[in-house]
């Protein structure tokens, strides 16, 4: 086989780049209440009128009972660690759109009000994270808050 024939048999790939922004406008609707609370440094959750379960992100219906959730409950500033893991590969930063390494473990927290939410932990050493440990929300400065989940900069362990 000649070098030319060999070249023709090589699989060929095409790569397209469409460098443009795709602006989405998502109406928050009933979720506006949650976003506004975050801007004020508060965490609130929707509550099912049947089972009393609180949900974050706020949901229009309780998935268990398919009942409209109109009650909002303050969840406090503290919660207990449910689970944690550290990402060992680059992931997107939603604020910059860039790939980055994440020093802070991603965690799931059960809040004082009963709802569960995700976030980052201030403690970067995973060996120091224990299920059930008490954590407290650390917020971005008020002027940086956008009413989004990452308005909470991270959760820091609290000594008991």
């Amino acid at each position: 086989m000649t070098a030319e024939q060999k070249k023709e048999e090589q699989p060929e790939f095409i790569q397209f780049r469409y460098p443009r922004e795709v602006p989405y406008e998502h109406a928050l609707g009933y979720q506006s209440k949650f976003a506004n609370a975050l801007k004020q440094g508060r965490i609130i959750a929707t509550k099912c009128p049947v089972c009393g379960r609180c949900t974050i992100p706020p949901r229009i219906v309780c998935p268990f009972h398919h009942v409209k959730q109109t009650e909002w409950v303050d969840q406090g500033q503290r919660g207990r660690l449910i689970s944690a893991f550290k990402i060992n590969f680059p992931m997107f930063n939603s604020r910059t759109g860039e790939l980055q390494n994440w020093e802070n473990p991603i965690i799931a927290v059960e809040l004082e009000g009963g709802a569960r939410m995700d976030g980052w932990c201030a403690e970067t050493d995973p060996s120091k994270l224990k299920t059930g440990m008490l954590l407290e929300a650390v917020w971005r400065p008020e002027e940086e808050r956008q009413g989004r989940a990452d308005d909470i900069l991270h959760w820091k362990p609290v000594e008991e």
Binding site: L28, G29, Y30, I60
Partner: peptide, 16 residues
């Protein structure tokens, strides 16, 4: 443009 309604609200209203 239903600017004040989340997509979930449209879905919920017709479902119920």
């Amino acid at each position: 443009k239903k600017a004040t309604e989340h997509t979930a609200e449209l879905m919920y209203n017709v479902t119920r």
